[in-house]
């Protein structure tokens, strides 16, 4: 029996066609994959893998210590609210790698013109990119603290009852989601400005680290008013975590003297402002056609 290859030629598409929401979802998923280095060369996977590992490391160490050291309690080392401080370095690195990788390259590779020639427009494009980055930020903001809460509960070192567990889980999710939104907003806004990936990455690190140093000097050394601490992303997010997870510490710093609720609101406002500025930037960005 012989076989034949038939040239089917061009076949019209008669199936269903989804709308803009499907396009947003498709671009968000594509952006998540690119941020994580999936279906890309090995070197693109290094930074995401390491930073996600760093974000989980404190939780893994704590759970390990609880398992192998009898009588060890989380309170011996740090509270849930301190977790952001232990992982902020990983968060900074992850933001600096993920956001520029999915935004600047679209402008330099000419993909932006192709995206805007699809059902997406400038607004839905920014929305899709924001959703994609926000989703991957969960891996370094929400996932580690959720892992810690669940693991502690399993080994018997977590909250006592179901209600306490659910409350703690809710607080952990809220803290993680707010920081994911904050870092997503900052990351996409800074990435919307320069054309080069490297400049955007360095700028994100600078935007996260420099204000913390400057506000620290101003408030603690130069007696500047306490509200200046609102300009320090790291201090603000740390305070927000402590406030949400109910583990407020007081070290006598300017950020400690600010209202926890206002700091949380400020973090949300920052995220919204960054998103709005990114949207505005993309209404005017020149498309390489």
């Amino acid at each position: 029996m012989s076989s034949q290859i038939h040239d089917l030629g061009y076949r019209p598409y008669e199936g269903e066609r989804a709308g803009v929401a499907w396009a947003v979802r498709s671009l968000a998923v594509h952006s998540m994959r690119r941020a994580l280095g999936l279906k890309r060369a090995g070197r693109h996977k290094i930074v995401p893998t390491l930073t996600i590992g760093f974000a989980f490391l404190p939780a893994i160490v704590m759970v390990g210590l609880s398992l192998f050291l009898s009588g060890f309690s989380l309170d011996d080392l740090f509270s849930y609210g301190d977790y952001h401080g232990f992982t902020s370095f990983a968060l900074f690195l992850f933001t600096a790698a993920a956001a520029p990788g999915v935004l600047t390259t679209d402008r330099t590779s000419g993909m932006l013109a192709m995206y805007l020639a699809s059902p997406l427009n400038r607004t839905t494009y920014v929305l899709a990119k924001g959703i994609g980055i926000f989703a991957v930020m969960f891996l370094v903001t929400v996932a580690p603290i959720v892992f810690l809460v669940v693991a502690y509960t399993i080994v018997g070192a977590g909250p006592g009852g179901l209600l306490d567990f659910l409350e703690l889980m809710g607080r952990a999710l809220l803290a993680g989601a707010i920081s994911a939104a904050f870092y997503t907003g900052l990351g996409i806004f800074v990435s919307s400005i320069p054309k080069r990936w490297g400049i955007a990455s360095v700028s994100i690190i600078a935007a996260l680290v420099v204000p913390s140093i400057v506000t620290g000097i101003l408030t603690e050394g130069a007696q500047a008013p306490d509200w200046v601490a609102y300009m320090s992303p790291a201090a603000m997010m740390g305070k927000a975590w402590e406030h949400i997870l109910g583990d407020v510490s007081f070290n006598g710093l300017a950020i400690d003297r600010l209202s926890g609720s206002l700091v949380v609101l400020a973090a949300v406002a920052y995220a919204a402002a960054f998103l709005a500025m990114t949207w505005w930037r993309y209404q005017n960005v020149e498309v390489d056609r």
Partner: peptide, 13 residues
Amino acid sequence: RHMAQLHGLPQQA
């Protein structure tokens, strides 16, 4: 494939 999806086609198509 990505561009086809953006134009509304399901994943397999």
